[in-house]
Amino acid sequence: MSTPSKTTHRKRRTLLASLFTAASLLFTGAVAADTTVRIGFQKSSTLITLLRSQGTLEQVLGEQGVKVSWHEFPSGLPLLEALNVGNVDFSADVADTVPVFAQAAGARLVYVAQEAPSPTAQAIVVHSDSGIDQLSDLKGKRVAVTKAAGSHYLLIQALKKAGLSFADIRPSYLTPADGRAAFENRNVDAWVVWEPFLTSAQRQLNPQVLADGSDGLADYQRYYLSSVSFAQQHPDIVATIFEELRKSGEWLRANPREAADILGPLWGGLDPEIVEVANRKRSYEVRLVQRDSLAEQQRIADTFHAEGLLPVKVDANDVDIWAP
């Protein structure tokens, strides 16, 4: 009996390798087909809300064999906590302050995208008849603010501008819905909040605006994030979500009233006119995160730490940044 030649052995090894590779690809495809991306969002997550209502991500990701599940959170901090412990995979936009607090708590997250600054999309308001006419009048007053939100940073910066510290006021840490109720019932003297809650209050309660983020007080950039493991394992899914967010922002800017008609009912039956005005204060320009654009993040971290509200110093550059 003849012995197989070396050439025959090589051909067999090549064939086995090819069969193994084919089997691996089939197996990988089966796993990908069962993949679900869990997206966390807040009621004010405009672009994600539009994509969700229009079924855009289900359609586009569905073509890749990926399913989508949605998880709503009352504010940004619990959303990023869920992202850090693996309960969701991708976070809709959160205020620039929120990742800083997550970093201080030891979270390892990936910056995927940011919205360009929107400094007028948050403000400090008081009742028109309160007698509070300037920022320095807030000394000793009760102020409703959402902890770790962008409005929290705006409040600190505004107090600093008036020669006050955070210790000079009496903060009430409340979600936007609870903050509105407390303000409307005059259980607090001032309220710091963002859009669309701000314009809604302006139209319905006629408050006085003490300050917004203009004049360099607070840029108010919102960030989209992913867990480290998900970004590493599914870069194609992250890329798809990024692109759809970018296109959604472009569509909203080109179709403000149509977007308002969609969002109004989803935001507790808000008048579309209120929604349209609110949206004009946000940039909705979704872009990649550049390392040098984190300078404001460092200022936020240093400010909170100086006020004793952040337990440890945070290096805002010590983060992972996604790139396509």
Score class of each variant (00 low, 15 high):
residue 97 T to P: 13
residue 104 A to I: 01
residue 101 F to Q: 00
residue 181 A to C: 10
residue 227 S to E: 00
residue 122 Q to P: 11
residue 230 F to N: 02
residue 302 D to K: 05
residue 130 S to T: 01
residue 71 H to Y: 12
residue 46 T to D: 06
residue 140 G to I: 09
residue 209 V to L: 09
residue 58 E to S: 12
residue 182 A to Q: 01
residue 199 T to V: 12
residue 170 R to H: 15
residue 192 V to D: 03
residue 166 F to S: 02
residue 318 D to V: 05
residue 309 L to N: 03
residue 223 Y to N: 07
residue 159 L to S: 00
residue 211 A to M: 06
residue 201 A to Q: 07
residue 112 V to D: 02
residue 59 Q to F: 08
residue 113 A to D: 05
residue 4 P to W: 05
residue 202 Q to F: 12
residue 276 E to K: 13
residue 86 G to R: 04
residue 55 G to K: 05
residue 276 E to A: 10
residue 298 Q to H: 07
residue 5 S to W: 09
residue 88 V to T: 04
residue 59 Q to T: 12
residue 239 A to E: 09
residue 14 T to P: 08
residue 49 T to S: 15
residue 144 A to K: 01
residue 160 K to M: 14
residue 1 M to E: 13
residue 30 A to V: 15
residue 32 A to F: 14
residue 124 I to H: 01
residue 315 D to R: 07
residue 107 A to T: 02
residue 29 G to H: 11
residue 58 E to A: 08
residue 316 A to L: 09
residue 265 P to R: 08
residue 41 F to P: 11
residue 155 L to Q: 10
residue 280 R to A: 13
residue 39 I to C: 07
residue 21 T to N: 06
residue 119 P to H: 00
residue 224 Y to V: 13
residue 13 R to D: 14
residue 64 Q to Y: 11
residue 36 T to Q: 11
residue 131 G to K: 06
residue 128 S to K: 13
residue 148 A to H: 08
residue 124 I to Y: 02
residue 122 Q to L: 14
residue 212 D to P: 03
residue 129 D to P: 08
residue 194 W to H: 15
residue 272 P to D: 01
residue 10 R to A: 15
residue 256 P to A: 04
residue 234 H to Y: 14
residue 106 G to M: 12
residue 313 K to E: 15
residue 310 L to K: 02
residue 280 R to W: 10
residue 167 A to C: 07
residue 99 P to R: 00
residue 70 W to V: 08
residue 245 L to W: 10
residue 26 L to C: 14
residue 317 N to S: 14
residue 294 L to P: 05
residue 89 D to G: 00
residue 42 Q to M: 15
residue 53 S to E: 14
residue 159 L to H: 00
residue 157 Q to L: 13
residue 65 G to A: 08
residue 131 G to N: 08
residue 197 F to Q: 10
residue 79 L to V: 06
residue 119 P to L: 00
residue 224 Y to S: 08
residue 318 D to I: 05
residue 118 S to E: 03
residue 38 R to A: 09
residue 240 T to E: 11
residue 311 P to R: 00
residue 197 F to V: 05
residue 303 T to R: 11
residue 256 P to V: 09
residue 158 A to I: 12
residue 316 A to F: 10
residue 257 R to Y: 15
residue 268 G to K: 02
residue 97 T to H: 14
residue 88 V to Q: 06
residue 167 A to W: 13
residue 270 L to G: 03
residue 126 V to S: 03
residue 73 F to A: 01
residue 35 T to P: 10
residue 131 G to D: 04
residue 192 V to E: 02
residue 65 G to R: 03
residue 269 G to T: 01
residue 264 G to D: 04
residue 198 L to Q: 03
residue 64 Q to T: 09
residue 119 P to K: 00
residue 142 R to N: 15
residue 273 E to I: 10
residue 60 V to Q: 07
residue 154 L to I: 05
residue 59 Q to W: 06
residue 273 E to Y: 06
residue 115 E to Y: 14
residue 62 G to N: 00
residue 1 M to C: 14
residue 51 L to V: 09
residue 57 L to C: 04
residue 108 R to V: 10
residue 3 T to H: 13
residue 53 S to T: 10
